[in-house]
Design a protein around this nucleic acid. Structure first.
Lengths: 169, 169
DNA sequence: ATATAATTGTTATAGTATAACGTAACATAA
DNA sequence: TTATGTTACGTTATACTATAACAATTATAT
């Protein structure tokens, strides 16, 4: 039973990940076209590498992959691509891991909340309205003007609780 | 009007910070005694330095201060103290800043939520039951077992919105 | 085609964190 | 008190993460 509605929870081990990638890259392309910004070959490739699975990936890991592909890359190469992708909402940064994960709804205002499984390494992005309103409600109460939110919940996902090693995509 | 009930919001510029420090250090001492762990001179001093104000402080900043005091310190010196303080709930790590801030209620189970002002640099720790239950509620819904939470909201605090430069303690 | 701006290459370095091993301080029991 | 084990700290080296600064290249619009 392959389902691809993993936006609100963790992707199962057997989900059709090619569809995740395909969808994400297509959305990225049309988003960039619409915005008049350039999703260059390098940026596209970095985004693609990040989408290899649902696990946040570090900058130096990406760098290593680019190098293996024959690309003569240095840290700024990948950090610049990451900056572009972040600026355009195509990826998110996971502060608690110093790592980056793909976002499949670029541009849309959303409250990037992450549940991160320390067993399979996967991160699920969600936008729970209750969490969001609880936070903005508190901010309003103390007169705080919110600019950025970093909400990262670590633990064990349902898949891993059920079968502690089937982790994949 | 000096008030010291800043647990739920940002401390005002004129609050009596000595009381914050005094209280925090006393609690730390009795907590460590009760737990049978050793709050050594070094660890105590690091905690004290962290409590210099309500701003998260970086490890290398602490290291520099220790050095200036004549302590022959190297990175592991401070990182080990930080680890002890973290393990015992005497400080929290702010992932988005790679920095550490004092916690005035060690031991108590609490949901470390932080509002961080990018203008005055201060961080207010809180424990909003609504935020907490919104998160644990979502976790329950998706069958996620929470281990650690990192909730960091950046923006501008009420004090700074009112008077953009009075920042202090 | 050429000028301009945007992107990438390249070198160097800053900032954050830990591994590994030796030494010193402390706690406890014989 | 001294031996003994344990915990904490000192010290050196190194790994990991990120950015500054400037040169070369590529894309885009005139």
């Amino acid at each position: 039973m392959k389902s691809n509605s993993q936006a609100k929870s963790f992707p199962s081990a057997d989900h059709d990940h090619r569809r995740c990638v395909e969808t994400a890259l297509k959305k990225a392309e049309s988003y960039c076209t619409a915005q008049g910004v350039r999703l260059t070959k390098l940026r596209y490739r970095v985004l693609e590498l990040i989408w290899a699975n649902h696990r946040p990936v570090g900058a130096y890991n990406l760098l290593q992959q680019l190098t293996l592909e024959g690309h003569k890359a240095a840290p700024p190469t990948v950090y610049r691509s990451l900056e572009f992708l972040l600026d355009n909402g195509l990826i998110h940064r996971i502060n608690s891991l110093n790592a980056f994960v793909g976002c499949d709804h670029p541009g849309l205002e959303h409250a990037a909340q992450f549940f991160i499984c320390s067993s399979c390494g996967q991160a699920a992005e969600l936008e729970d309205a209750r969490i969001e309103s609880a936070i903005s409600g508190h901010a309003k109460r103390i007169g705080f003007n919110i600019e950025r939110k970093s909400i990262e919940i670590s633990g064990t996902c349902a898949n891993c609780i059920a079968s502690p090693s089937k982790a994949k995509g």
